[in-house]
Computed example of a mutant assay.
Amino acid sequence: MADSNNSVSNDEILLSVRHLKKSYGDHEVLRDISFDVPRGKVFVLLGPSGSGKSTLIRCLNGLETIQGGTISFKGEPIDGREKTWRRLRTEIGMVFQSYDLFPNLTVAQNILLGPTKVQKRPKDEVERQMDGLLADVQLSEYRDAYPRELSGGQKQRIAIVRALTMNPELMLFDEVTASLDPEMVREVLELMLGLAEHHMTMIVVTHEMEFARRVADTVLFLENGVILERQSGHDFFTHPETDRAKAFLESMAPISDGE
């Protein structure tokens, strides 16, 4: 199994996972998961439904407790206490497929809430950052709109802007296009590609194979709670090492028209 992290020095590692285990009762969902994420790199988690991808990414933000192993961020092991995770969530942003915007707050109020209330940053400073990000994603005109006035793709871009306004060092994306209409998927993926081009460190769970091919520095292919294959994005999509990964890629390929 190829390991893309062999040549990475410790001071470049942002997130380190060692022998992570996660169970629900007697059902072991993740078994002995280990990997390092260097700064500025994009890791894509691929695998069939039920392989543990979403559970893993939720463990990395403290949304799921773990039963074994360690998670370290910037060289420091995370003790697992909720107080610690609350602090780290200002540095580890996460975007879900369900947007999670507060329906009774405007776009601006949704975005400003975390930086001003949690990080205690000056409102005018955060507003300048927010306005710049909204302009970047072409949503400035929706600053004072409510979530119900937005399309799914617009809501998801606002959710990403909200996370970025916290100035995270690591971004986690869990199937953020899964609930979108097909025509809305592109605008969200293009935003994420832009983040990758600006060297945002990201861990992404996705079923969008062409996007994964373009964005992944490293692919972790999971099945039955283990990392079955670990390769560079290029090598995984051109020369998968395992028969299971080959079968997965074939199952995700576009349907041929037979011509």
Rank of each mutant, 00 (worst) to 15 (best):
G152D: 10
Y142T: 13
F173K: 10
Q156W: 11
Q154W: 12
Q154H: 12
R148F: 15
G153E: 08
L134K: 10
R157Q: 12
L133P: 04
T165W: 02
R143K: 15
R157Y: 13
G152Q: 05
N167Q: 13
V161R: 02
K155F: 03
Y146G: 11
I160D: 08
S179M: 12
S151C: 06
T177R: 00
P147R: 12
A135C: 05
I158M: 04
M130H: 04
S179A: 15
G132M: 01
R148V: 14
L150D: 12
N167R: 11
P168N: 09
S151D: 06
D136Y: 11
G132Q: 02
K155E: 08
D174I: 01
V161C: 04
Q138R: 14
E149Q: 15
D136T: 13
L139S: 15
L180H: 05
T177M: 00
P147V: 09
E141C: 01
L172N: 06
D144P: 03
Q156K: 11
L134Q: 08
A163M: 08
R157V: 10
D144R: 13
Y142M: 15
L139D: 15
V161W: 03
D174N: 03
G132Y: 01
D174P: 03
D181T: 01
R157N: 08
N167P: 01
T165N: 12
V137E: 13
G153K: 11
V161P: 05
Q156R: 08
R157A: 10
A135I: 02
E169V: 01
S151W: 05
G153V: 07
L172P: 07
V137M: 12
M130N: 03
L170A: 07
R162G: 05
D136K: 15
P168T: 08
E175Q: 03
S140F: 05
D174E: 02
I160N: 10
D181S: 00
A159I: 13
E169F: 01
Q138M: 12
S140C: 07
D144I: 04
G152A: 07
L164F: 04
K155I: 04
A159G: 14
L134E: 09
L139V: 14
T165K: 02
E169R: 10
I160M: 13
I158Q: 03
R148Q: 14
S179P: 02
Q138E: 14
L164D: 08
Q138Y: 10
E149D: 12
R162V: 08
N167A: 09
M171Y: 00
D181Y: 00
N167F: 03
G132F: 01
L180P: 06
E141Y: 04
R143H: 13
M171I: 01
M130A: 03
Y146A: 07
M171P: 00
E141R: 12
A145Y: 11
G152I: 09
A178K: 00
R148K: 14
K155A: 03
E169C: 02
S179R: 05
L134C: 09
R162M: 10
A163F: 06
A163Y: 06
G153P: 13
E141L: 04
L139E: 15
L180A: 06
R162A: 07
V161S: 03
A145F: 11
G152M: 05
D144K: 14
E141P: 04
P147A: 11
A135P: 03
M171Q: 00
Q154N: 12
Q156F: 09
G132V: 00
